[in-house]
């Protein structure tokens, strides 16, 4: 179980400045075991920052973070990972010379047979065994890299997995496969929880609970069936295209010099 108690996170407006801006504003939240939680809300609302605070990539200005009853507020990223918190980055790093198989093995904390590696990759829609010997460098496309990032979390199998916009950079055709994977992996009732930061309706609809963040505060939180109607999602019958009124284009404000 994850408990956030009165979390505040301020950043300096500019380097060296004593003036600060509040990114996370007194958030308290409990995520019990066996929960599929989606954190959503407008851009700049503090979603990614909240995820980074849970993983330890950022340290809160004040407040407390408890994981399974242990105070992890001051713990390093490494120690939190060892306790069972995992994080899937929105923009994954590339590693020159590191093979995909090696990255999966580091994630799993042990040597993995080829078959196991292939299973992780096929769960994220990378079905060719060739990927295992590919390097995690710029030879991979953004979408491939993103899917490998998700596969590392599947291999790590943390008790609490946090995914920051896993759908970003993934094509429509692989996205279906991915939502099936999230559903299959995190709805097993094995005590593992998942927090996904997402704007995607199809992911939001998988959630047990939904948290809406706006301006660093929780705007709404609760069971999906209560929150989804408040989100005003524009889901239409067509799964892949929902046509909406095009926005007005103010051509005078769009730079044409670049």
């Amino acid at each position: 179980m994850l408990e956030l108690k009165n979390i505040v996170f301020d950043v300096a407006v500019e380097e060296g400045s004593s003036k600060t801006k509040r990114i996370i504003d007194n958030i308290s939240l409990t995520i019990p075991d066996d929960k599929f939680v989606v954190v959503t809300g407008p851009n700049g609302g503090g979603k990614s920052t909240l995820a980074k605070l849970i993983m330890g990539i950022e340290t809160p200005t004040s407040g407390q973070i408890l994981f399974d009853g242990t105070d992890v507020t001051e713990m390093s990223i490494t120690d939190r990972a060892k306790l069972g918190i995992g994080y899937g980055f929105q923009q994954p790093s590339r590693f020159k010379g590191m093979k995909v198989k090696k990255l999966l093995e580091i994630a799993a904390g042990k040597r993995l047979p080829m078959l196991a590696c292939n299973e992780y990759l096929s769960k994220v829609g990378l079905c060719s065994a060739n990927y295992l010997t590919r390097e995690v460098d710029k030879s991979l496309s953004g979408g491939e890299l993103k899917r490998i990032e998700i596969a590392t979390l599947l291999a790590a199998d943390p008790k609490l997995a946090i995914y920051d916009e896993p759908e970003a950079g993934i094509d429509l055709w692989s996205f279906d496969r991915l939502t099936q994977t999230f559903e299959a992996v995190y709805k097993q009732g094995n005590g593992h929880s998942i927090i996904i930061i997402s704007h995607q309706e199809r992911i939001i609809e998988l959630a047990d609970d939904i948290v809406c963040l706006r301006d660093g505060q929780i705007e709404a939180a609760g069971p999906a069936e209560e929150i989804i109607p408040q989100l005003g999602l524009s889901r239409k019958e067509n799964d892949y295209c929902s046509f909406t009124q095009p926005p007005d284009l103010h051509l005078t404000t769009i730079s044409t010099t670049c």
Partner: peptide, 20 residues
Amino acid sequence: IKLMTLGLTEEEAEQEILDD
């Protein structure tokens, strides 16, 4: 940071990156 989220210490992560 990525390798630390997978359980390596900062020193182990640096060594891993250099080795690869």
